[in-house]
């Protein structure tokens, strides 16, 4: 194999590994930041949802069903006006039927099918990052802490997407530069190392050529690379021994 062939054979996977590692590192930075951002965003939204929920549960704790909460529409309308990032608020009864509604949009459209079972079972707010919005579904608990209904609040994810776009834009040049540099340095470095290795092997090959049995002149083989001297000496000795035996056989 020629040095260039071997270089390519080693360089391509080396570059592939390095590129994959850099890209993975970049992805990790992006995904982890998104995770932390979502955590902070969800915790802010959950705080607001808990506020609305507490207002609604005041009525439920009096033993009223969801549809009988007199101020429910007022509470959710006020909340949706106060926070411009809220797209819609739905108050649902225990069967999951929307009773009160504020704002526009898909309501529970992006919630998983089993949202009700999940909310009832876990008795805590379901937090979903849907493709078009953040959706928080909180259980509304009645007088005996039982599931009396749910509050579904959809928040816009425009700010989130904008932040993530900025992070992406910040990461892409860094990652691209790192990949390009790695490719260049990797290719150049591997080629240098391969050339050096091939040169060394070439010296040994050359020594074996000089020392091969076509040329038994020890003044020539003496110049051979030290590492192959014992092998060459053994080969010479073997030939010599065979020839001497040959001579002895003929003379007999």
């Amino acid at each position: 194999m020629k040095p260039i062939g071997l270089s390519l054979h080693i360089t391509l996977p080396v570059i592939a590994i390095a590129t994959f590692a850099i890209a993975f590192n970049g992805y990790l930075n992006y995904a982890k930041f998104q995770k932390h951002l979502i955590q902070v965003e969800m915790s802010r939204m959950k705080f607001s949802v808990d506020d609305i929920r507490a207002n609604l549960e005041n009525g439920l704790r009096l033993g009223l069903p969801v549809k009988a909460i007199a101020n429910a529409q007022e509470v959710i309308t006020f909340a949706s006006r106060k926070d411009s990032s809220i797209l819609s608020i739905d108050v649902l009864d225990h069967t999951g039927t929307p009773i009160f509604k504020a704002g526009q949009g898909a309501g529970l459209g992006s919630a998983p099918k089993n949202w009700r079972a999940s909310v009832i079972k876990k008795q805590k707010t379901l937090e979903i990052l849907a493709p078009d919005s953040f959706l928080l579904v909180a259980p509304l608990l009645g007088i005996t802490e039982d599931f009396s209904g749910a509050l579904a609040v959809r928040y816009s994810r425009d700010l989130h997407d904008e932040t993530m776009r900025e992070v992406f834009k910040a990461l892409v040049p860094v990652i691209s530069a790192a990949i390009i540099l790695s490719i260049l340095i990797g290719a150049f470095g591997v080629h240098l190392l391969v050339s050096k290795a091939v040169r060394k092997i070439g010296v040994i090959e050359h020594s074996l050529e000089l020392g091969s049995m076509e040329n038994s002149d020890t003044s020539v083989t003496g110049k051979a690379d030290g590492t192959v001297q014992p092998a060459l000496a053994a080969a010479r000795l073997a030939i010599q021994e065979i020839r001497e035996t040959e001579k002895a056989l003929v003379q007999q």
Partner: peptide, 23 residues
């Protein structure tokens, strides 16, 4: 090569990323 390139990516991107959480 892997160590330097990955460390470079992380070190140069962390300050920017960190700042994005503050708002």
């Amino acid at each position: 090569l892997m160590l330097v390139s990955q460390a470079g990516v992380s070190i140069s991107s962390w300050p920017g990323i960190k700042g994005k959480l503050v708002p």
